[in-house]
């Protein structure tokens, strides 16, 4: 579905709004206790916003929203030692999204989202192995892949409903 064009100001406003939402969601999720005691397993709700930005605005805009969210969340959540993990994971997920949104139709956005979530976890794991120089951490790979698939399907479905609702608003 082609998006009706937006003016520069409309784009900028929507980007700012989505960035604020992503940051809020990210901070909220950080306050929730982890559902399972496995490092790296998380809901990844902010992924909903990255997907929404990519489909409503485009790749470049989604990249900007993601980059600002990652940098600001490191500032607000105050953990510079974990910034590298979110940055690498986010970049991996973003690249996968860029490719797959062109290949997989929007009605199966949940597939794109799940694969992107797995890529995020893979990137995070690789960054962790590199930082702590402990290759045995690869044993986390299978469970992080499963976690990415499951959470990715749900964030993808959430993004589909959000995109639908936001498009309805413009009509």
């Amino acid at each position: 579905m082609a998006e009706p064009p937006r003016s520069g100001t409309q784009k900028l406003t929507l980007m700012a709004l989505l960035t604020a939402m992503a940051l809020g969601i990210f901070m909220l999720e950080a306050q929730l206790p982890s559902p399972v005691p496995i490092p790296g397993v998380k809901l990844g709700l902010a992924n909903i916003i990255t997907l929404t930005a990519m489909l409503l605005l485009g790749r470049k805009e989604a990249g900007a929203v993601l980059a600002v969210r990652i940098l600001m969340s490191a500032m607000f959540a105050g953990s510079p030692s974990t910034l590298i993990f979110s940055a690498v994971g986010g970049t991996f997920a973003y690249l996968v999204m860029c490719v797959l949104t062109a290949l997989i139709p929007e009605k199966r956005l949940w597939v794109t989202s799940a694969i992107a979530a797995v890529a995020h976890n893979a990137g995070q794991l690789l960054a962790s192995i590199w930082v702590v120089k402990t290759p045995t951490l690869w044993v986390y790979a299978p469970i992080l892949a499963v976690s990415g698939l499951i959470t990715g399907v749900f964030t993808g479905l959430a993004a589909m409903y959000l995109i639908r609702a936001l498009r309805r608003l413009r009509r």
Partner: peptide, 10 residues
């Protein structure tokens, strides 16, 4: 098995 990890503290 699975190592214990505290990622924020490396």
């Amino acid at each position: 098995g699975i190592p214990i990890v505290c990622m924020p503290h490396h």
